[in-house]
Amino acid sequence: MNIFRLLGDLSHLLAIIILLLKIWKTRSCAGISGKSQILFAIVYTTRYLDLFTTFISAYNTFMKIIFIATSLATVFLMYVKFKATYDHNHDTFRIEFLILPAFVLALLINHELSPVEVLWTFSIYLESVAILPQLFLVSKTGEAESITSHYLFALGSYRGLYLFNWIYRYYAEDHYDLIAIVAGLVQTVLYCDFFYLYITKVLKGKKLQLPA
């Protein structure tokens, strides 16, 4: 464990808390893509299957359980409890266009052709693009509430911080995992446009509004 990884995990946890609090306090999931949340729920449930086979640390197990539970809880809040507030007219991204290619790629490029390993790889590939429906929703409505922007910033920072963790581990531990690194790079790059808008607008107190 190094500082980048810890900050990355905390940033990820913060993003989830921001999102759940936003939905709970406002009793609304307006502006949030249910499609992205479904993808995240698939990502964590397929990645953390090793909960049953491998023990790494209490921290690792605890975080995995939290990520699975909160992603499922978010989907439940959006599609059951606060269904009436869900923006389904704007949330039209076809997630099968992300799920199927991620799965095929995981079958082709992986560390080992075993079910658990292929599912881990699939989850890494899928996570890298899972935010696309959310970014698509923001671009369709042309704006995002500040709280949604904070959520996106924390969520984007998480994989960005992991990139530093991987650089650190490469030098300090001689450890690297190309699949995670390349997917993490793609994932972070997808947020760059949003990061720019967040820093130039949201941090200066303005609403995130896209040019018409």
């Binding site: 995990d9 090793d50 086979t53 690792n60 995995k64 560390h111 881990w120 992991y162 690297y176 190309l178």
Partner: peptide, 10 residues
């Protein structure tokens, strides 16, 4: 070492 299972990151 290049990657070795298990995956120890989140």
């Amino acid at each position: 070492t290049i990657f070795e299972a298990p995956h120890d990151e989140l």
